[in-house]
Design a protein around this nucleic acid. Sequence first.
DNA 1: GTAACCACTTTCCTTTGGGAAACTACTATC
DNA 2: GATAGTAGTTTCCCAAAGGAAAGTGGTTAC
Lengths: 114, 114
Amino acid sequence: METEITKTECTSNLKNVIDALYVLNGKWKLPIVLSLVNSPKRFNEIMKDVEGISPKILAQELKHLEQNELVVRNVYATTPVSIVYEASPYSETLKDVLRTLSDWGAGHRKKIIG
Amino acid sequence: METEITKTECTSNLKNVIDALYVLNGKWKLPIVLSLVNSPKRFNEIMKDVEGISPKILAQELKHLEQNELVVRNVYATTPVSIVYEASPYSETLKDVLRTLSDWGAGHRKKIIG
DNA sequence: GTAACCACTTTCCTTTGGGAAACTACTATC
DNA sequence: GATAGTAGTTTCCCAAAGGAAAGTGGTTAC
């Protein structure tokens, strides 16, 4: 038996995967994180970099990413205050996940379309 | 420089990841695949195993999974015809993806909630 | 003082995903 | 002839996701 697994283990795996997908899900979260991995940016700079996103959605997604500690919101006491978003050190842990997904996605497209 | 990457590489990675997530997305696709990995099943058996799913959604998701070659639909010429769904050999390639996602999801829950 | 910039928020609308229930066409059983 | 099962489809409905456009409260440049 190579990978024998109990039903309990299986459902808890499923729950983990669903949790992970919840964090990564939606049209904009990954593009925003990747934009900030390149360099920290201010709100309007992200708007320009991530093409097509509306301010409502950007504000909402940044909050979600902040809650999940993937993005840090820095407030600087200049006049007027400047707010700079950056990818957290913790967002590094997504690397493995993104590489695996990217590899599978590339292979899958070849299989289905090519 | 450890992981220098061009903008083109980065966007193509992003596209790959989004393609992968498109295939795995939604409330039911993974539960269905995992149910069929345990054993091949008929329509109404899947209905019982994957709790809460409606026949409309199940039919729709099975079509999606079939198009992506993760599930195979076998028709047997009994009277009446019996139709058995099974996880394809190709669905094995999801293992790495699911393990990585599961690991990250488990760690993430600990970080954010625990 | 007026025009523009910044970081959003608010309102309204459309699209998408998914659920409930009924229905279909066929067959088998009592 | 009535009931039940098999493998779905159809219709109607609701909620969440996301887009467009305008507004807000402050500051700065001209």
